[in-house]
Design a protein around this nucleic acid. Structure first.
Lengths: 145, 145
DNA sequence: TTTGTTGCAAAGGGTTTGCAGGAGA
DNA sequence: TCTCCTGCAAACCCTTTGCAACAAA
């Protein structure tokens, strides 16, 4: 299997990047987290050799460009990053209680967009959908309380 | 007709705010623009008595809380503000060429969300949808070129 | 007169940049 | 060896805060 075609295992080499411990650390942190992390949280979790904060910024920017991660601005106006398992179009669902996220495919949205196009006269080329709610675990807890 | 029920004409008094020239200026600037503006752009356009930048920040924050405006983070990571004509749930469509925006009602999205809930196990409580594309004028121009 | 608002200036804090040393390939 | 990458520190810049003066009601 070609490196670049393996979701969840981004290949630095295939993307023309050098393989450094800092980059591997950042990717590992993103991979191990099931919720979006701030730049500083990512920085703190990099194992062993703590890299510099600027390095984290610089690499996150590249990873986002590669489609390996996505930046999400939450309601608290703080930028967080999540890994993207799939590189095609998708959205993130985030639990407002525990912060866990799930990736969802485009689902039936396309039809709604076609509908919108005819209503508004706009030709819609791209969209960003942020979904917030309660994950199954948290909504079960909430129901018990 | 009650003040607070008039979309497009936010009543400072009804919201428990004092009526100041600075506030009226900011609201006027938002009203006169058909595309999202940065804080600084709003500040520069306030007629006559130029208010302080902190005042613009402070009031925009309140206006957003009141539902009179909305903050939008574009692809350039810059925060911009648009007025909201309707205070109920809606979305903004933005032209990537000229920057003009249009408000659209929720449209068929609800159905897609129900579908997503059953797929993901999440209970979706709120969402933010940003739509980008070409407005009718710009797509006509693009077609001619 | 009372109290919410403004303006100024300064502080704050997240993000970016310059540059020299270091390490992949 | 040749570049790319990193780390440090400083610079940046947008945003917020403190406080005294001001003005709406």
């Amino acid at each position: 299997m070609a490196d670049s075609a393996t979701p969840g295992t981004p290949s630095l080499r295939a993307a023309g990047m050098r393989q450094t411990p800092q980059r591997e650390g950042i990717l590992r942190v993103l991979k191990d987290s099931d919720r979006p992390l701030t730049v500083e949280e990512i920085w703190e979790r990099i194992p062993e050799r703590r890299s510099g904060l600027p390095t984290v910024y610089r690499n996150l920017e590249r990873f986002v460009r590669e489609g390996w991660a996505e930046s999400i601005l939450g309601g608290d106006q703080v930028m967080r990053f999540v890994r993207c398992d799939s590189r095609h179009h998708h959205h993130h669902l985030q639990c407002e209680r525990c912060g866990r996220t799930a990736e969802v495919d485009a689902c039936g949205l396309d039809e709604s967009l076609r509908n919108l196009e005819s209503l508004s006269g706009f030709k819609i080329t791209r969209h960003q959908l942020l979904l917030f709610g309660l994950c199954s675990a948290c909504s079960a807890e909430a129901a018990q309380a």
